[in-house]
Design a binder for these strands. Structure first.
Length: 1035
RNA sequence: GCCUUGGUGGCGGAACUGGUAGACGCGCUGGAUUCAAAAUCCAGUUCCUUCGGGAGUGAGGGUUCGAUUCCCUCCCAAGGUACCA
């Protein structure tokens, strides 16, 4: 048999699988189903690096394993192909994003193909493909045509809501809807115009238009996310950003807040991910309480102000949300967010100047800024008072930026004795801190523990513990009409509009300003062509550049904008959908991806049901994975899908980090002048205009010392050398004429010492290193762009001419020059080696650094495996297996099966190594052993497994071969090498039969000479014998 | 701050429900083979040691015959989240 020619083998089997459609899944099978899914990638221009395939390999191993176990496996792959980078590239180069995307996808496909995945490519989806986004648009329309009925606790068709309105108005409707929804009866409803009716309905629909405040950057012509803004200006370009109200589509995800929370208990997802979602939804239970503003104060103000008397007929109300209504008798002030709408209305003339100044100052700071600055206490008294709902005492109303307008009602009742922030605020401004806790000292800090005390000084709540007090106070609040029990969520409705080109167009046109949906039969509404991909001069989104972007309702087609008459031809929506639109149902579309009549057939969804195993990165915790659960629940409510959670089990694969390489550039000399006793920093450029000292600007790692002060030199020899050269420089007076700063050194430069040199570290591309070592390939580096960019620099090397770089583990990314590409590794070691190695690196869920050096280990394992099969070529080897052979095999079967079920792929790779090492030393040539072994290996290293399988004489693919059955009988032992420990420490081993009795074991151990030596004459206090496990002697 | 997950040789990492710590691989050292190299094979490799043995899983304490594993306190790292009322 020839050598292990992995390139030939891998190519052959990849072609074989493609031709034979080995991994095509059927939607109709007697076998049980298994749906294994990897998160589909965004096809970026950079291609795959070694970190990307980690999760795919894991999913692939599990899929192949399930096939061996007799399952009908669905294992699809596709592309999340709408997105910003392709659009940005289009803006810069004019190349259509569709072309960029297509090129990138082709590159991805090539890279994926060479890794030997068992994907069913016939089911590939691309979110930017009109045949795909037709169904994204369809779901949008379904959401538009739905409302959330809190009584049935599910989404229903909007027609059921209209029916209720027509019959009884909306007073009895309990729905997730806008806060400003008016109440009306049947007569009023029927009296509304069609447009008014549509406006009301929009307040109930699960996707709706609303004015949303966004971060608008006029210079970039786009909306920015919070993290794209730094210090009030855009991160990119530093342009000013303003808050701007824009009409945007929103998704009423808040309707599902509770069900999204409850659903987490039913699914097997990682705890950290569930916790992120729980925090994100942010449920808090408490009460809303209404405080009236004291009107006698307000009325006085009316004399001075222009407030009309009608405005104060009804007292102003401040609604707060609190999780501790039981502490209401501890309220000593209230705080409003500076943006609160009442601030302007209630501020007294005396306080007006101060309040206005504070409001203005806060407005200048971004919300992010305010939140980051937690320590500073600031606030201003408005001069107004609220009335305590029970005691009727006046409560001063303050404003303070620790209260956020965006959470709750933007106002809090401050209970300084029970909340540390309120406490600090009260202390700072000398406000009363009444104590309402029995026997608790609050002289130093607030007391926030709910469980360990009872309420005092609180009228009817006195003596009650937390839970009882909560119940009682909520009942009382409801009785006097000043509040009610309430559950508050942090979760906000999701903005669904983007001012981008490369996204799904909304299937929406506008009649009289009201949105109308395009009928399903006319979908997809395809993305129009535009001249340029930037926003228009009038600030409209990029689709505003399209000239053919109007909807002809009669012809049901897109026509030129010139034809818009608002009778039959109407303008189309200019925004596009966000990135998560296309990924929120793709897992279901894979079940029936070529269906043009429906998003999927009922047969397909009923057969596949849901995803059994989903593997992907944890960065999608509160984005994709939350939105997908939301849409799935909606689809469930509407009866389209049978499960209300789309993925039963989810695993987050860890990140593979890269080892960045660094070189060090000298930045500053610290010079000490002995004659004058002066210390000075000299920036290297200032003394360097002839390039003289720059010749030493790259220093190797071992001469560098890193500390919290910076990176500086750690080599006395070099300091001396620099000192010498610096003196020479002064001696030869080669300084610039205008650099008189250093003139003072000229007179006594002989007393000059370089005492330290500071360095700036620079990433150097890992491909400039010699092989996989830490040594810089000096020639290669000198020919590189980086080197020529940084001018004529020389490296200070060791005496033997080597330059050792510094290494640090960082996220693998192009900008850090630490990317390792799988192509080169496949070329050199093969896909099977890469697959095995990625798994061998460590636990799937853990992040770990990539180190190419280690791949030789798994590669030589594959060579050993190959050699093990060599004598059996041509189907020979009917040799009876020995007991040892069988023991090794079955030990391996057991371990590998357990490992795969536990997703502990790293340990099964070592199990294979042990197995092959053992069989090799046993000189095993039995087909009865090697055939099942090939099946065990095949999920991990499918190419070599197929090859060996066929060389053993099999004609069919190994993919469907049944997984070997583990048999306990081959592992039964008759004796055990007992560890003999003294006080828990193992000291020696003793072989004894397994059927030996406890007493006999004890006697045998005590009689042993080594035992006596250990005891040194002492009598053991106790002897523990655990048969089959251990002997422990105490004494 | 809070939540979560971790902390084991020079490195990546093993160790089942408490029962022989360091499997497996990398690296390193020595040897064999070779004209030489690659490749391959063999032996060694936690630390200390007076070669008897002793210590050892972030630190300290506890439970136990026995703790990497369970409990408490603390330290460190990574990820998430944050004036959330």
């Amino acid at each position: 048999m020839m050598n292990y020619d992995f390139q030939k083998i891998e190519k052959y089997w990849q072609d074989y699988w493609r031709k034979n459609q080995t991994f095509k899944a059927s939607n109709d099978s007697d076998k049980p189903k298994f749906y294994a899914l990897s998160m589909f990638p965004y096809p970026s221009g950079a291609g795959l690096h070694v970190g990307h395939p980690l999760g795919y390999i894991a999913t692939d191993i599990y899929s192949r394993y399930k096939r061996h176990k007799g399952f009908n496996v669905l294992h699809p792959m596709g592309y999340d192909s709408f997105g910003l980078p392709a659009e940005q590239y289009a803006i810069q180069t004019g190349q259509h994003p569709a072309i960029t995307t297509e090129n990138n996808i082709n590159r991805y496909r090539e890279q994926l193909d060479q890794l030997g995945f068992s994907f069913d490519w016939s089911r590939e989806v691309r979110t930017s493909n009109p045949q795909y986004y037709k169904w994204t648009q369809w779901i949008f329309i379904q959401l538009f045509n739905a409302w959330y009925n809190k009584k049935s606790d599910k989404a229903e068709n909007i027609s059921s809501l209209i029916a209720i309105f027509e019959k009884e108005g909306n007073t009895d409707v309990e729905a997730a809807c806008d806060d400003d929804t008016p109440s009306f009866d049947t007569v009023t409803w029927n009296g509304y115009s069609e447009k008014e009716k549509q406006e009301i309905l929009l307040k109930y629909r699960l996707t709706y238009l609303a004015d949303t405040e966004v971060n608008w950057c006029p210079a970039l012509g786009t909306v920015l996310a919070n993290d794209e803004i730094v210090n009030g200006v855009s991160e990119r370009g530093g342009h000013p950003v303003v808050r701007k109200k824009m009409t945007q589509w929103s998704m009423r995800i808040t309707a599902y807040a509770q069900r999204l929370l409850d659903g987490l208990d039913k699914i097997d997802w990682p705890q950290p991910l569930k916790d992120s979602q729980t925090n994100w939804i942010g449920r808090s239970v408490g009460a809303s309480v209404t405080f009236n503003v004291k009107m006698d104060e307000m009325l006085k103000q009316v004399q001075h102000d222009d407030v009309t008397s009608s405005a104060v007929e009804k007292p102003y109300e401040i609604e707060v949300f609190t999780t501790r209504p039981d502490t209401i008798f501890g309220v000593s002030f209230m705080t409003l967010a500076p943006e609160h709408e009442l601030v302007a209305k209630i501020t007294t003339p005396e306080q007006k100047v101060e309040v206005d100044a504070y409001v203005e100052a806060t407005a200048k700071r971004s919300e992010r800024d305010r939140m980051a600055d937690v320590k500073t206490i600031s606030g201003v008294f408005t001069g107004a008072y609220a009335e305590h709902p029970f005691t009727k005492e006046p409560i001063p109303i303050w404003i303070g930026d620790y209260v956020l307008a965006s959470y709750g009602t933007g106002a809090v009742m401050a209970v300084p004795c029970g909340d540390q922030r309120d406490y600090d605020f009260a202390k700072h401004y000398n406000i009363d801190i009444p104590n309402i806790f029995e026997g608790v000292d609050i002289s130093e800090e607030a007391f926030a523990d709910k469980e360990t005390t009872v309420i005092a000084n609180s009228d009817f709540l006195n003596g009650l513990p937390y839970k009882k007090a909560m119940k009682k106070i909520i009942a009382e609040l409801e009785r006097i009409g000043h509040g009610e029990g309430k559950v508050n969520y942090r979760l906000r409705d999701a903005v669904f509009s983007r001012q981008r080109y490369w996204g799904e167009p909304f299937p929406v046109y506008y009649v009289d300003g009201m949105p109308q949906m395009i009928d399903l039969e006319h979908l997809p509404l395809q993305l129009p062509e535009v001249e340029k991909y930037l926003p228009t001069e009038t600030g409209e989104p990029p689709l505003g550049n399209a000239t053919e972007w109007a909807w002809d309702r009669l012809k049901a087609e897109v026509v030129s904008n010139d034809l818009i008459d608002n009778v039959n031809i109407f303008p189309l929506e200019l925004n596009t959908m966000p990135g998560w639109a296309g990924s929120s149902q793709y897992f279901n579309r894979y079940m029936d991806p070529r269906n043009d009549e429906a998003i999927f057939s009922p047969e397909a969804i009923n057969y596949w049901q849901d995803v059994d195993l989903y593997i992907g990165g944890s960065e999608h915790a509160t984005g994709h994975l939350l939105y997908s659960r939301f849409w799935q629940k909606f689809m469930f409510d509407m009866g389209y899908v049978p499960k209300d959670e789309f993925a039963q089990k989810l695993i987050n694969q860890g990140m593979i980090t890269g080892e960045s390489a660094f070189i060090y550039r000298a930045e500053t000399f610290v010079v000490y002048n002995d004659g004058k006793g002066k210390v000075k920093d000299i920036p290297i450029e200032e003394i360097n205009n002839d390039g003289y000292l720059l010749s030493y600007s790259y220093i190797k790692n071992s001469d560098i010392h890193h500390s919290s002060y910076g990176t500086f030199i750690n080599n006395e020899e070099l300091e001396k050398r620099f000192t010498k050269e610096l003196r020479e420089k002064f001696a030869s007076k080669v300084l610039n004429e205008d650099e008189l700063v250093y003139e003072e050194y000229l007179s006594d430069y002989e007393n000059l010492y370089v005492t330290a040199i500071y360095f700036y570290k620079l990433h150097v591309d890992v491909s400039y290193l010699v092989g996989v070592s830490n040594e810089l390939d000096v020639d290669k580096f000198k020919n590189s762009k980086m080197y020529s960019d940084t001018s004529s620099l020389k490296l200070i090397c060791d005496e033997d001419g080597k330059y050792i770089v510094g290494r640090e583990v960082e996220k693998m990314s192009k900008s850090k020059y630490n990317v390792v590409n799988p192509d080169a590794i496949c070329e050199e070691y093969g896909a099977d080696s890469l697959r095995l190695y990625e798994m061998f690196l460590g636990p799937l869920e853990q992040s770990k650094p990539w180190n190419t050096a280690g791949i030789t280990g798994v590669h030589s394992f594959l060579k050993k495996l190959w050699r093990l099969y060599s004598p059996l070529e041509g189907g020979e080897g009917g040799v009876e297996p020995t007991a040892d052979n069988l023991k090794t095999l079955h030990k391996t079967i057991k371990k590998v099966e357990e490992d795969i079920e536990n997703f502990s792929f790293n340990t099964s790779v070592s199990t294979f190594m042990i197995c092959v090492n053992e069989l090799t030393s046993q000189k095993c040539t039995s087909k009865a052993i090697l055939e099942p072994l090939a099946i065990l290996v095949s999920p991990y290293a499918p190419h070599i497994a197929e090859e060996l399988w066929s060389r053993l004489g099999n004609t069919a693919s190994i993919a469907e071969a049944p997984f070997p059955k583990f048999e306990e009988k081959y592992l039964v032992e008759s004796s055990k090498e007992y560890p003999i420990s003294f006080n828990g420490k193992m000291r020696f081993k003793l072989e004894m039969p397994l059927d030996m009795s406890k007493e006999d074991i004890e006697a045998a151990v005590l009689a042993h000479e080594k035992t006596q030596a250990q005891l040194e004459g002492r009598t053991p206090k106790k002897v523990i014998v655990v048969p089959g496990k251990i002997v422990n002697i105490v004494g």
